[in-house]
């Protein structure tokens, strides 16, 4: 895998050659439908990697195979050197996961929600209270911590989910469309927290998004995904640089897939597919 990593992994303290995520030939079918079609992906430790693609590209399916929710059908997937098929518990222990859908137990308070996950991840009892408080603090939820989560706004729910995912101090944080459905202010709030986290800890983050801007702001490297395949990988700057001084990631995406990456191209509709074929033909 080539491409400039803007924050080289060797500065992360321990020289560790094991990639955070390594997928080889990953293919996943739902019935006849191939959702992920032979994916090779490597995410180095310490980087923030964005899987970028329109709805239906196969991002969520990829994530769900690597977090052990879906069984691995074809190919191989390792998380920090642990095979998802042979060592699912080890993989889960290392991973913090925030799913695409907002998901919180509304009948519990914010603090109770986070404590619940601290227990499920075996956070030692004597550290639990402090770790829960720290995670809430880091996500700016200390004041609302003892209110029922059902009273939270969308942005607060997302931050609470981040706190839940972080309380285990995961080596790899996986965020599936972390800001989808949030208003611009809430979105900025989430971006800010992820950036803070990256700057403070150098945690490896794998996120999926269909917002170019999000990828541009947050990611060291992005992989452009379309119709179950990874079309290209590189740092946002590098990818844009290939196209010219004023190019946006939007342009890059169009160049590699032949489709727009806005909400109108959802589900890779017929037009998108046709134009992809054309592009594929043109590119050889």
């Amino acid at each position: 895998m080539t491409g400039a990593v803007s924050r080289p992994t060797e500065t992360k303290g321990v020289a560790c050659p094991v990639p955070a995520v390594a997928c080889r030939g990953l293919r996943h079918r739902f019935g006849d439908h191939v959702a992920v079609d032979g994916m090779d992906l490597e995410v180095a430790q310490g980087e923030v990697f964005g899987l970028l693609g329109p709805n239906g590209a196969g991002k969520t399916t990829t994530i769900r195979v690597l977090n052990t929710l879906l069984p691995l059908q074809e190919g191989s997937v390792e998380v920090l050197g642990h095979d998802v098929r042979r060592a699912p518990m080890a993989v889960r222990r290392l991973m913090g996961y925030v799913p695409q859908q907002l998901s919180i137990e509304g009948a519990l308070t914010g603090r109770e929600n986070v404590t619940w996950f601290a227990r499920l991840f075996d956070v030692p009892r004597d550290e639990r209270r402090a770790r829960v408080a720290d995670a809430l603090e880091l996500m700016g939820l200390s004041e609302a911590a003892d209110k029922l989560a059902s009273t939270y706004s969308g942005g607060m729910v997302r931050r609470l989910e981040l706190a839940q995912a972080l309380v285990n101090r995961p080596a790899l944080l996986v965020l599936d469309e972390p800001t989808v459905g949030l208003d611009p202010i809430a979105r900025d709030g989430v971006w800010q927290r992820v950036e803070d986290l990256r700057d403070a800890t150098g945690m490896t983050v794998l996120l999926t998004t269909h917002y170019m801007e999000e990828a541009d702001v947050l990611c060291d490297r992005v992989g452009l995904m379309h119709l179950g395949r990874l079309r290209t990988v590189g740092s946002p700057r590098e990818l844009k640089g290939h196209l010219g001084p004023d190019a946006s990631l939007e342009d890059v995406f169009r160049r590699y897939t032949g489709v727009e990456l806005d909400e109108n191209s959802d589900k890779g509709g017929i037009r998108a597919i046709r134009s992809t074929r054309r592009t594929a033909g043109r590119l050889g």
Binding site: V167, A171, L172
Partner: peptide, 15 residues
């Protein structure tokens, strides 16, 4: 590299 943070230490520790 900053080595400590409120909620999460460097990523490698978990491994």
């Amino acid at each position: 590299m900053p080595s400590a943070a409120p909620a999460a230490p460097p990523a490698v520790s978990a491994e």
